[in-house]
């Protein structure tokens, strides 16, 4: 897979992981979407989100990362630190 395709693929995986875990439409997943800003992103959904992200990107996050993952933008930043390449 080309580098830019990989970046796009990872971006899609990130957004899809959020949509699946929070059970919301993909269109709702924007960088500014934040923890507890919508009813669907509660503590239970946060656990599911972490599991979904770990499964999608085949990694295990640290507890500090999980606590810090307060928005979509923050999730991308944390995943980047774990070696995931985004555009």
């Amino acid at each position: 897979m080309q580098h830019h395709e990989l970046q796009q693929s990872n971006e899609q995986k990130l957004l899809q992981a959020f949509a699946t875990a929070l059970a919301v439409d993909l269109a709702l997943i924007t960088d500014t979407l934040a923890y507890n800003s919508i009813a669907q992103w509660d503590s239970t959904a946060h656990m599911l989100l972490i599991a979904e992200l770990e499964n999608s990107f085949n990694l295990m996050l640290d507890t500090d990362d999980i606590i810090d993952m307060s928005s979509v933008a923050k999730a991308r930043q944390i995943l980047t630190r774990h070696g995931v390449v985004f555009g």
Binding site: M47, L48, A51, E52, N55, M60, T63
Partner: peptide, 10 residues
């Protein structure tokens, strides 16, 4: 328990 539950949640 914390780490196992994340694998089981999937």
């Amino acid at each position: 328990c914390q780490l196992a539950s994340r694998l089981m949640l999937r």
